[in-house]
Structures are given as structure tokens and as C-alpha cells.
């Protein structure tokens, strides 16, 4: 469904990603895990088309989307839940959700989408007139997820959903991600929290220093000593 091949990204002369190939199939929940500074957010911004590729290509549902604008990328059906949530903090919850369905094709489904996300997050219905910047981190993350869902995407791109959240909220957010996935959504989850990500993902990539160093099912990655030792916080056996 979404396929990146041999992607290389650089900030000026400083390369940040080397030869990265990633794919997400329909209905899959794929995780990309790795430590701070591995290039995860760079990869998200590249997929959202906020950064140009130096090399490589991206295809979405068979269409070449290597060179399109962020606006056009969203129109193809990729919704981004950015790192740090990036809500429109001076706007109310419902206004944020309205921005999610700003595009004409999703605007037509506004009421239906709104009912769906409020069913998923009842707290947001209660707080729909609250200024989103005044909410707790966990609630803001819910708004960010809901806003992305309002665009009725084919693929959800979730960048560091656990960032800055209390542990209990982290568990809740991962439960919600699983719930959305069970509803049939294809999800690419980019996370620093490796253990939690491997708990929910069907397949995972390990990214470090701008390179993919491993790929496989979570159980398989956990059983590889070099991966488990370096990234999962277990002592090597």
C-alpha cells in the first residue's frame, strides 16, 4: 500500500537517512523503532512530503508520490499524527477536528466522522469547546489522533505518540492505536518506546543512525540477541 525504496534524505549536506526501504501493506500495523536521533522523525516528515528525497522513491497504492506536495500527499489518504501532537493550540477541540476534515472529500463526511471519533474518545465530546492548548498531554494526543481520523485516511502515520506522556496515558494511547487498527486501518507507528511498539505491531523495523538495521516480526526481533541487547533494554544472554 505504502512503499519506500532506497530513500536517502539530507539536511543540506548532512545526510540523515541512508537507503531506507519500508513498506506497509493494507490493514497492517508496522512499527519503526529506534533510539533518539536515529532519523525516525526525519522519515515521518519525508513520508508526509515535508522533506525532499535526495534519492529513492515512494509509491502509495501503486502511484508514484515521490515528488508531490504535502497538500497532495494528504489528499492521497495519508494522515500524520505528528511528534509533539502539534495541535492548533489556540483553537477549540472541535475546530481542530474540523481542520482534520478540511479537504472537500472528507468534509462531506464531517458529521459521520465526528460521531465516530467521539465514540472512540467520549472525553473529547465533553470538551469539544475547550481550547486545545489548555488540555493535558494525553488528551491532546487524543485530539491529534482524532484530527487525523477526521480526514478518513487510508494510512495513519503516528510519530512518537508516547512522547511526554505519563506511563498510564502511554498504555491508553497504545490501546487506542490497537483499537483503530482492529477497525481495519493501516498504521505506521514510529516510536522510541520499543517494547510497547513490539507488543502491538505485526511487523517492525529497527532504525539506527539513519539506517535500517533489522526487520521482522516482533517475536523474531526479540529473539535476536544483538537487537534485544542494544534496543530492548535486556542484557544479552
Amino acid at each position: 500500500m505504502l512503499r519506500l525504496e532506497g530513500v536517502e534524505i539530507a539536511y543540506g549536506d548532512a545526510p540523515a537517512l541512508f537507503d531506507v526501504s519500508v513498506h506497509v501493506d493494507r490493514g497492517e500495523l508496522v512499527a519503526i523503532v529506534g533510539p533518539n536521533g536515529a532519523g525516525k522523525t526525519t522519515l515521518v516528515n519525508a513520508i508526509a512530503r515535508l522533506l525532499p528525497f535526495r534519492k529513492g522513491s515512494m509509491h502509495f497504492q501503486g502511484t508514484d508520490v515521490t515528488k508531490i506536495s504535502p497538500q497532495a500527499m494528504g489528499a492521497h489518504g495519508i494522515a500524520v499524527i505528528p511528534e509533539g501532537r502539534r495541535l492548533f493550540t489556540q483553537m477549540t477541540v472541535e475546530e481542530n477536528l474540523d481542520m482534520g476534515c478540511y479537504r472537500r472529500n472528507s468534509r462531506a463526511f464531517r458529521d459521520q466522522s465526528l460521531a465516530e471519533v467521539y465514540a472512540l474518545f467520549p472525553i473529547l465530546r465533553e470538551r469539544r469547546h475547550q481550547i486545545s492548548g489548555t488540555m493535558s498531554g494525553g488528551q491532546q494526543q487524543m485530539v491529534a489522533i482524532a484530527r487525523a481520523l477526521m480526514s478518513r485516511p487510508e494510512v495513519l502515520l503516528i510519530d512518537e505518540p508516547s512522547l511526554g506522556l505519563a506511563p498510564i496515558m502511554v498504555s491508553q494511547v497504545f490501546e487506542i492505536i490497537q483499537k483503530i487498527h482492529r477497525g481495519g486501518m493501516s498504521i505506521l507507528l514510529i516510536e522510541q518506546n520499543v517494547n510497547k511498539s513490539l507488543d502491538v505491531a505485526e511487523r517492525a523495523y529497527v532504525l539506527d543512525c539513519g539506517r535500517l538495521i533489522a526487520e521482522g516480526a516482533p517475536s523474531e526481533l526479540r529473539s535476536r540477541p544483538e537487537i534485544a541487547g542494544a534496543y530492548l533494554g535486556h542484557a544479552s544472554p
Binding site: F88, Q90, D98, S151
Partner: peptide, 23 residues
Amino acid sequence: TYIGKALRANVENPAIASIFGVQ
């Protein structure tokens, strides 16, 4: 209106607004 909301969103975060289709 959507245009009004888009303006306010765009002034706060143009990159994110553009992802949601704001021109």
C-alpha cells in the same frame, strides 16, 4: 467558516495546516 479556521490554523502552524490541505 472553514476558511476562517484554516487561516487561524495556518498562522499557528503552516506545515501541519498544509498536511490537512490548507493552501
